[in-house]
Structures are given as C-alpha cells and as structure tokens.
C-alpha cells in the first residue's frame, strides 16, 4: 500500500498521563481517512503530533517516506476543531499572513486567495474584519486558509461543525473535489453519518490505543454478525417458527415496509444464506431479505463499550 503518512509506535505522555500508547497508523495516499474515537481518546494529541505542534515521546512519523520535519509544514493543511482567526485583522491580510507562514510567497498566496474567494463568491469580504463576519462566514475563511497552500495532506477536525446545512454541503463538495484532485484527507469527527458517507478508511482510537484500522469495507466485514433481516408473509406462522428455530437463532426486529409481514432477525450460525431462504420459501412469501451490515456507528459504540 502506498501510504502518504505512516505513524509508527508513537507514544505521547503528559506527566503521568499517557495520551497515545504506541499508536501506529498507515494513511493511504489519496484516501479520505476517518480518525474516530470518543472525547479524550488521544485524537487531538495525534493530530498535533502530525502537525508538529508537539513532539512525541517516542515513535516516528513519516510523510512521503521522510521523517517529519519543519519543511513538511507546507505539505499539511490543518483545521483545528476550535476555530480561530485574528478578530481585528482584515480577512485578506490575515489569509495572506497565514499563507506566508506556511511558506507560500506573497504573490502565490494572493493568486490562490483570489481563486478561492472567487470560487466561494466572497471577494467582497477582503477588507472586512473577522469580527464583522458571522460565524459561518468566518468558518468559510477558515477553510480557505486551511487549503490555500494546496497541501498534500489535509487534516480536518470536525470540519462541519458550525456550518448550516447549505454551507456544510458546499464545503463537503469542496473537500470531495480536493480529494478527487489527489489530496489525502484525514477527518477527525464524531459525526458518523459523514464518516459513512465520505470515508474509505477509518481508524478508531480509544483510551490512547488504536483498536481498529482499515478500509471501511474490511472493517465492516470483520464486524459482520451474519444476521439477516427477513420479512415474510406466512399463513402458518407456528410451523415457520418451529422450522426456523431448529436451525437458526431467531429474534424480532422492525424495518419500514409497505406490507403487514412478520419481521424477523435471523442469525445464520455458520450456515449459508440459501439454507435460510429455503426454509423461508417453504413457509410463505418472502418480502424482505437483507444482510444486517453493521454501521460505523454500531461498530464504534460496540468497540468502545466492550473495551
């Protein structure tokens, strides 16, 4: 796998407290990587280490195969969860300053700024002070500032918080477009629906340890329960239940449907789906037959609560 970022055995302690306990991660180039974990799990510590804000006690971070060093600042764009800009500084001036701090020349920064301001239709904000803008407007500026220097790796901590649905969608589209153009994106978020929607890789950190890492698909397969949701219209429910319980574990469930059918959740217990189907078709009309795929949310909650 071609990894843009490799985290190797990173340990970070604050005094007696261990924030990261030998965490290793591989972030494939060009993916959208979801970094998940409950509050206080160590996500922010890891992100700060990747951004060279703090140093790990031990371990190594490789960006493009090279040990992370100050020259990599320009390769990374970072939007922290706690957004912030200089309130009394003018938007344009501020964006230029922050881009120059990343290592962009003034001319290049101006060019990029112009591109983004036109794209988001915010040219008129150039001479406004941040404190004159609404929260959502300031968030847009924050996003522009983050991506202005065309980083290879974009780290977004809760990127959609503070946006209204329209703007959240706008930013989501921008993120997806950047990803299509080759930018690798790390999401740190609690919003599982956006993980489900956008991420192709995830890692779950809990209590300073990495518990899960991999492709979303693989993670889901690893956590599949082999349970099926079944809907059946049967004239002889008693016989159906006898037949089913002989071979499978059966439970009640509920799903949306137009029919008034029997709704069951059935555990395959190592048998093939067709065996189940056979039993079902012998006893009535099958209206619904779906494998229960665990959502990221389910996996998250299950993993966190069992550890």
């Amino acid at each position: 796998m071609d990894a843009i970022l490799e985290v190797k055995d990173v340990v970070k302690t604050y005094g007696d407290y261990t924030a990261l306990n030998s965490v290793s991660l591989q972030i494939p180039r060009g993916c959208i990587f979801g970094l998940l974990g409950p509050n206080g799990a160590g996500k922010t510590s890891l992100i700060r280490i990747i951004n060279q804000i703090t140093l790990p006690n031990s371990g190594q971070i490789l960006l493009d195969g090279e040990t992370l060093s100050p020259k990599h600042v320009i390769d990374i764009g970072y939007m922290p969860e706690e957004r912030g800009l200089y309130k009394t500084m003018k938007v344009g001036e501020q964006a230029l300053y922050l881009a120059q701090l990343k290592g962009l020349s003034k001319e290049e920064a101006k060019k990029q700024l112009k591109y983004w301001f036109e794209k988001l239709h915010i040219e008129s904000w150039w001479d406004k002070k941040i404190q004159e803008l609404s929260k959502g407007m300031a968030q847009k500026i924050q996003f522009v500032v983050t991506v202005l220097h065309q980083p290879k790796l974009l780290i977004l901590d809760e990127p959609f918080s503070g946006f209204d649905p329209v703007n959240a969608n706008l930013i989501k589209d921008e993120i997806l477009e950047l990803n299509r153009k080759g930018t690798t994106i790390i999401f740190s978020t609690h919003r599982m629906e956006s993980v489900e929607e956008m991420c192709d890789h995830i890692a779950l950190i809990h209590k300073s340890n990495k518990l899960i890492e991999g492709k979303v698909q693989d993670v889901k397969i690893a956590h599949r329960t082999h349970a099926y949701e079944v809907g059946i219209l049967s004239s002889n429910v008693e016989r159906l239940m006898v037949d089913l319980t002989q071979k499978f574990q059966v439970g009640q469930t509920d799903f949306k449907s137009l029919n008034d059918e029997l709704k069951l959740e059935i555990q395959l217990d190592g048998k093939m789906p067709n065996e189940l189907l056979n039993v079902l078709t012998q006893n009535g009309q099958v209206t619904h037959f779906v494998e229960k795929v665990p959502s990221i949310n389910d996996i998250f909650i299950k993993t966190v609560s069992t550890n």
Binding site: R48, N51, Q52, I53, V73, I76, Y78, P80, E82, R83, G84, L85, Y86, K87, L98, L101, K102, G103, V145
Partner: peptide, 15 residues
C-alpha cells in the same frame, strides 16, 4: 488574544 481566539493552534502548526 491568540489563545482565546484559538488561532494559536493554526499558527504553531506553521511556526
């Protein structure tokens, strides 16, 4: 001011 406006994290990710 930098601390309360939270811009500090962005700045020290650059310098």
């Amino acid at each position: 001011e930098e601390k309360t406006s939270r811009i500090i994290e962005i700045i020290i990710s650059s310098v």
